[in-house]
Computed example of a mutant assay.
Amino acid sequence: MLRQLERLSLETDGRYASAQELEFLKNYLATAEQRISAYEKIRDAEEKILDEVERQLRARNPYIFRKGNQDYSAVCRRDRRHVLRLGAAAMLFADLNALREGFLLWYRTIIKAFRDEKAAQLTYQVLPEVVNQALSSEEAPLMQPVMSLTQSILGE
């Protein structure tokens, strides 16, 4: 959204924007109230969402956060928190490109470096389900593209 506004500002310098150029802004403004509401719900339910994701992951694999004798639960929770927060911001500002290029591609490299692909795959299957439970039927579709992108990049 912010990048699109900046681009529109530069492209229309000295002239009026066309109806076609304004379409993205109309679409965004039509969903702004739901985006803010969804963002606030995710923010306010963050701990519950993270707890439920962890509960479901442990139910599927009790050792999902262990490597040898090391327990990486806290590190994994921190990382899920970052994914959730950045995803909520991407939904709020309607900016999937910033999420993809600014975080997800980098984080995928980290996941691969630590050979955590299986845990990531399971995590990013569960996270969208839990996030959807925290949102209304009008809000959930706004977060769906973020969750799909996250799952496709981190859960591959």
Rank of each mutant, 00 (worst) to 15 (best):
V131C: 03
L105M: 14
L2C: 08
R115G: 07
S73W: 09
A45F: 14
T150Y: 02
L57P: 05
R85L: 06
L96C: 03
Y63L: 09
R58V: 11
A119V: 05
G155C: 05
L2S: 15
D71N: 15
G68Q: 04
L29H: 10
A120F: 09
Y124M: 00
E129F: 00
K67Q: 13
E129S: 07
L57W: 00
L5I: 13
E54H: 11
D71K: 07
S18N: 04
R58P: 00
Q4E: 11
S152W: 00
N27H: 12
R85C: 02
A30F: 09
L149W: 02
E101W: 10
V131R: 01
P62A: 11
V126F: 02
C76V: 11
G87F: 03
E139D: 00
P62K: 10
T150Q: 06
F24K: 12
N27R: 15
A17P: 03
R58D: 00
G155V: 04
L84N: 02
G102F: 08
C76H: 14
M91F: 01
A74N: 13
A74E: 13
I42E: 03
D44Y: 05
E54G: 07
D71T: 02
D51I: 10
Y124I: 02
G102D: 06
Y107E: 05
R115K: 13
A30W: 10
C76D: 07
M147P: 00
I64Q: 10
A113H: 09
R100M: 06
W106S: 14
A98P: 01
R35D: 10
L96V: 11
V75Q: 15
V130Q: 00
E6N: 15
L29W: 09
E54F: 12
A113P: 02
R66A: 11
R77V: 12
Q20G: 08
G102M: 09
A74R: 15
T12I: 02
L22N: 05
G87I: 03
R55P: 11
E6W: 15
S18Y: 04
Q121N: 12
E138M: 04
A32S: 05
E129I: 06
Q56V: 03
Q4T: 11
A90E: 03
R81N: 12
C76E: 07
A19N: 09
M1K: 15
N69Y: 08
R66P: 12
Y16G: 04
Q56R: 14
F114E: 06
P141V: 00
A119H: 06
L29E: 13
S73A: 15
L50C: 00
S9Y: 15
L86A: 01
Y72Q: 05
A119Y: 13
F114C: 13
E101F: 10
L22A: 08
S136L: 03
F93R: 10
Y124H: 14
P141R: 00
A74F: 05
L22H: 12
